[in-house]
Amino acid sequence: MIDIKNITKVYNGVTVLNIPELKIIKGESFGLVGNNGAGKTTLFRCVLDLIRPNSGEIISDGHAVSKTAAWKSFTGSYLDEGFVIDFLTPEEYFSFLANINGLSKDDLTEFLKDFEEFFNGEVLGKRKYIRDFSSGNQKKVGIAAALISKPDVLILDEPFNSLDPTTQIRLKNLLKKLDEETNTTMLISSHDLSHVTEVCKRIVVLHEGDVAHDIKTGKDTLKELEKHFAV
């Protein structure tokens, strides 16, 4: 599904990302962990064609992401607050996205109904602009927005951060369900090792821009990861 070939990114003479080859197959749940500055967000931005790598290319379902825009129609993403249009109300934002993605009104209603539990009554019907929400609730909006088009590829950067414990658990369940019931390819980065091992069947550890580990999640994965990070 996603082919990463020879990607390097250099800032001020420092290589922050260097991945000779990384293949993520269709339907895989792919977890990305690493310390601050390991290159997680940089990699995701490359996959979304938001930054131009110094070399290499990324192919998403046969489309080179920097050459065409075809991948946008099957990719949902939320990296940070810059991904939501904050002067809209959540309702306006969702209906904007529904229109952009060619969803009908009924599709939208159904979609929002599915997310009722995830929103926990704190998002819809508040008569507030997104910029006036707490960061946790803004994140809920962003994650839901990434899923609105029922994407084949879902990219989330630190989705568990700043969510309350209940919502973290709900998000985990939501992602697990998505993984089991659909063929969605998920790329999820996290600082929380236990969350990411629970959700993802494959974990890649980035260290200073390089792939340090590439593990199939098993019983001992969490211990293995903890050992790697306990320095």
Partner: peptide, 14 residues
């Protein structure tokens, strides 16, 4: 500029 990434990443025809 506040949400420029969204303009780029969403399915918006340039």
């Amino acid at each position: 500029s506040n949400y420029f990434d969204a303009i780029l990443a969403h399915n918006i025809d340039m």
